Simulated assay, not measured.
Amino acid sequence: MSSVLYVCVRPERSAADAEHRSFRRGLGVDSLDRVDLLHASLETVEWQQYDGFVIGGSPFNVTEADKSEAQLAVEHDLERIASRALDGAATALFTCYGIGVVTRMLGGEVTLAHPERVQAARIQLTDAGAADPLFGPLAPSLSVFTAHKESAAATPPGAVLLATREECPVQAYRAGDRLYAVQFHPEASPQDFADRMAVYRASGYFDPREYAHTEQTVLSASVDGDALLSGFPGLLGA
């Protein structure tokens, strides 16, 4: 059994399959086990036997007022993974939508005040980030892809801010030693993100009238996500 489980929360199969491939490449592993929470609960896999979890993004938003039963079930399972990492029994990396789930679980506020469009953005590491085993090797900053409507209003209680950006102050934090949450998409290469744009063209992450220009900007970007993800397996069992 692989020691890392990719947790998918995307309804769109093409985007989910591509994200799975992206995480596998970024982690530098030949195979990566997977569970799709919109089609199966955590109980369908031996999830408590995994040392690590990487949680992908989703068009869901924590701030949605009228959530479907499927979204509520997804968030319940994500909180179970986060609790396991918070207890130190595994290491987990939550991305984009997942940072909202973790922030709320920790007693923090999720807000619509700091959206970021589809872009490559440079984020700055804090002193804690520079000392962190996952983020530290990339200090003092890294370039990442962003695309979201909601974010943490502030670092939630008990967490340590690792990376920030003026337009969206909470870019990454760690709770305890093994629970990581990031606002950005570390798994995506420029081509990955351009392909994802096609799936979410009408979802409000960018102006569809500027599709060609935004796509070209994405394809010409240089990002450090793979460098971040490649350090994740080294945290398992440490």
Rank of each mutant, 00 (worst) to 15 (best):
A90D: 04
T146C: 07
P233S: 14
A128H: 02
Q119Y: 02
E75S: 09
V54M: 07
R25L: 10
V7E: 10
D177I: 00
S189N: 03
A121C: 08
A65E: 12
M105E: 01
C96Q: 09
L235A: 01
G98K: 05
Y211K: 09
S31L: 13
P157S: 11
L112E: 15
F232N: 00
A159F: 04
M197L: 09
R84I: 08
P208E: 15
D33N: 09
G56E: 05
L228I: 04
A82F: 03
V170C: 14
Y205N: 07
P115N: 02
A175T: 10
A202R: 15
Y97E: 03
A238M: 14
S151A: 12
A139W: 11
D226N: 13
G231H: 09
P140D: 02
V62Y: 07
G225Y: 01
P133E: 07
L78P: 10
T103V: 10
V218A: 00
L72K: 14
V144D: 02
A181G: 06
D132Y: 01
S41I: 05
W47C: 12
Q171Y: 04
F193Y: 11
V110G: 00
L42P: 00
F135T: 00
A154N: 04
N61Q: 12
D51V: 12
P157W: 13
E187R: 04
Y200W: 06
A65H: 09
A15D: 08
Y6F: 15
E109A: 11
A130I: 02
D33S: 11
A159W: 03
S31Y: 14
R201H: 13
Q124R: 15
R25V: 11
L138F: 06
P59C: 13
A130Y: 01
G129Y: 03
V62L: 10
P140Q: 03
D87N: 14
A202S: 15
G129T: 00
E116H: 14
G129A: 08
E167P: 02
D177Q: 14
P157G: 08
V4M: 12
L142T: 03
R122P: 07
V118F: 05
E116L: 15
A212V: 12
S14G: 05
E210K: 12
D224E: 10
T91C: 13
Y180Q: 02
S3F: 08
E150M: 04
I55A: 05
L27H: 05
D207Q: 09
L228R: 06
P140T: 01
L134R: 08
P11S: 11
D30I: 00
T44P: 07
D51I: 12
A139N: 13
A92D: 10
L138N: 04
R24L: 05
L37M: 04
H185I: 02
V182M: 06
V218F: 00
E12D: 15
Y173S: 12
S58M: 14
L106A: 03
A92V: 03
L37W: 07
P190W: 00
G26N: 07
A212R: 06
Y173P: 03
